[in-house]
Amino acid sequence: MKYFGALIISLTAFISCTQPEKKLPILGNREPVEKTVDGKVVVDTVYQTIPSFNFINQDSVQVSDKNFAGKVYVADFFFTSCTSICPIMHRNMLKVYNQYKSNPEVKLLSHSIDSKYDTPSQLKKYADKLGVKGDMWEFVNGPHDAIYGIAEKSYLVSVAADSKDPANFIHQGWFVLVDKDKRLRGAYDGTDPKQVDQLTSDIQTLLDEYHTR
């Protein structure tokens, strides 16, 4: 009987140590749909997903959603001549790149919001100078409306040309984490090294979610 207390304590300790596996939330809009499974009507949730897209990368190669199928990826919006938040964002993104560049399940996708100036050759120069090789990190150019549309509607990142200054763009420095099912799983302030560290570890959490299934 005198060991009973000790037993309770160690049991409690044991239970509290086996935490449920950490899962990232699913972000964005969602709607319930009714569907029939085995003759029964069940309610399922449809989450917001990234629609198909088609852009041109720094190697002048077409890049579409198919290149991101089965990948966990991080998306952001920038332009190469930006001297405000973009250098900070990509200084931080470079850490994510170095961490995962040899992992074929992870990709990075930076959209230029300055389609006129950031031609593929300009993006190539930028990627080279940043020290980025291969196609793990894609820098893409696309039609203005397509880029701005996917930013606002799909990745929920606000971007706009500054009407006062033609060389300037107002945009947010979010890094958006997308899972293998094209759902939004996290948004991180790309200018904050702490949040980017969180992103780096959340990518691993997300990969583990797929590995343990």
């Binding site: 938040i85 250098p87 900070i88 470079l94 930028y126 100078k129 940043l130 020290g131």
Partner: peptide, 15 residues
């Protein structure tokens, strides 16, 4: 600092 870094480290071969 945005380009040249808080420790003057620059960024790649960009800055």
């Amino acid at each position: 600092q945005n380009c040249h870094g808080a420790n003057g480290e620059g960024l790649g071969e960009l800055y």
